[in-house]
Write a protein that binds this DNA or RNA. Structure first.
Lengths: 79, 79
DNA sequence: ACGTAATGTCAAACATATATAACATAATGT
DNA sequence: ACATTATGTTATATATGTTTGACATTACGT
């Protein structure tokens, strides 16, 4: 699970980690950890960050099936 | 934070909570709790569920700014 | 009436996200 | 040289997601 948080932060007038954290209700340490992919945030936090940058969650956070586990699509069963 | 999991599960050949849980790597209790909005899942789980139904995260989980806290948009600061 | 499948719900344990506090470095300005 | 700002990083504590095990209800088929 990678993300564009750091890039988006630079594009938003070089917003600092502390400033971003303050705006979305997180600490700067948590922002740093998220940017480095040390863990994936909660869905709620993902929505807050994406909304702040005017993006969709999937535009900010990039997930790949099997990047963690392996599983199929619902349609792969029906069709 | 509401979601369409239950609806999507019915549309997918009446998949059971247990079956959905098995496919995305969760227990049926966790699926039930998520459907009822008792808590919002992790971003990873949200991606797995959305992917299973061939939807985007924001199509499955509906979040509203201020539904939990109050905060602004990045552009609301710039102009 | 009985068994089974699907769901709701609860309590306790466990895993992970997040906060807080502290210390470190590099870059900037005085 | 010194202070300040932004960031990286660690340890510990707290909050919350998730699992496991159990028990209850409803609906269906026999």
């Amino acid at each position: 699970m990678t993300n564009e948080v750091r890039l988006l932060r630079f594009l938003a007038q070089d917003m600092t980690q502390a400033e971003l954290g303050k705006r979305v209700g997180l600490t700067r340490q948590t922002i740093a950890a998220i940017e480095q992919g040390r863990y994936s945030p909660s869905l709620d936090v993902a929505f807050r960050i994406a909304h702040l940058f005017g993006k969709r969650v999937d535009e900010v956070f990039h997930w790949q099936p099997g990047g963690d586990q392996g599983m199929e699509t619902a349609s792969s069963d029906a069709g």
